[in-house]
Structures are given as C-alpha cells and as structure tokens.
Computed example of a mutant assay.
Amino acid sequence: MDFEQADAVNQAIRLLSLRHRARAAALLAPLGLHPGQEVLLLELARTGPMIQAQISEAIGCEPPSVTLMTRKLEASGHITRTPAPSDRRASVVELTDSGRALADQVKQLWCTLAEETVTGLPAQTVGDLPGVLRTLAGNVDTRQPRPSHGRRAPA
C-alpha cells in the first residue's frame, strides 16, 4: 500500500471514530450518560451480573476506567456493586430497575446511531459491515501478538 492510500484509509477511520463518538455523546447526554457507560450498561443487560474484571475484558476497557464508570453509575442509582462471594476484593456489578430501564433507552439510542451511521449504504454492505469492522479491530488489537508478515526477527 502506498502512502496516499494508507493516508486515505487511516484518515477515514480516524474521522469516523471521532464523529461516531461525538454523535454518541450527543445522544447519550440527555440520558445523563457519557460514552463508554452505555457499553457497560448494555453488557450487563446482555449477560447479567458480572465482576468488574469480567466487565473490563468484555467491553475492552481498562480496569480503572471500569471502576470509575461503575462508581458513577452506582451513584446515579443505575447499578449496584456488592463484594463477590468467592473474592471479597472483587465487586459483582448488577443493574438496578433504573439501570434496566436506562439500558432499554440506550438500546433505542444505539439503533438510532447505527441507522444514522449506515444511511445510504446498500443492505449487503450493512450486513457485511460488522464482520469487516471486527476484522479491522482485530488487526490493530494491541493485546494480541502481531504476526511477522514474513519479516525475520533481528539476529
């Protein structure tokens, strides 16, 4: 890939990321949420109670960020945190009734955001998009060892 093509790909991904996050923030603000908190709420709605370390892994977020999000969501009454029976140092996080209602609102918002994002794309492209984006994310996942792509390690 030459620089012009690389630049076009990287700039498009960067711009999409920035604008998608900004639009998500604008949609979440009336609900009293910040970007990232909705992902935590949706994960708990999908899976049920989890310890914070599991949440961190599931949503791809650093543990200190999950701790901060859970504190804020607990203070607003949307989740509860209780000591894990098997490890008192760990906290089990669970949605409250308020949190479940908020997660339902977030699901509607999430549909709106996705529909806005893919407007104008053919249905086949929209269907292929999640797989393509997961592949792209996997290609730049810093938690995974990088393939050598035929390069030899220095001797």
Rank of each mutant, 00 (worst) to 15 (best):
M1W: 03
D2M: 04
F3Y: 12
F3H: 14
E4I: 08
E4N: 10
Q5K: 11
A6N: 07
A6D: 05
D7L: 13
A8P: 01
N10L: 15
I13V: 15
I13S: 08
L15D: 07
L15Q: 10
S17F: 05
R21W: 12
R23Q: 13
R23V: 04
A29V: 01
A29N: 03
L31D: 07
L31N: 06
L33D: 05
H34K: 08
P35A: 06
Q37R: 14
E38R: 08
L41G: 11
L42K: 07
A45P: 03
R46D: 06
T47Q: 13
P49Y: 00
M50R: 15
Q52K: 14
A53F: 00
Q54N: 01
E57H: 11
A58F: 00
A58D: 04
C61T: 15
C61W: 05
E62M: 10
P64G: 04
V66E: 02
T67C: 05
K72E: 12
T82P: 00
P83H: 05
P83A: 02
S86N: 12
S91V: 02
V93W: 05
E94Y: 03
T96S: 09
D97Q: 12
S98Q: 01
A101R: 15
A101Y: 02
L102Q: 09
A103N: 07
A103Y: 00
Q105I: 03
V106L: 07
Q108K: 13
Q108V: 09
L109D: 08
C111T: 13
C111M: 05
C111F: 10
T112R: 09
L113P: 12
L113Y: 01
L113D: 13
E116G: 12
T117F: 13
T119K: 15
L121Y: 15
P122D: 15
A123E: 14
Q124N: 06
V126L: 09
G127S: 13
L133S: 10
L133R: 07
L136N: 00
L136I: 14
N139S: 13
D141R: 06
D141Q: 04
R143H: 02
H149V: 04
H149T: 03
A153Y: 00
P154G: 12
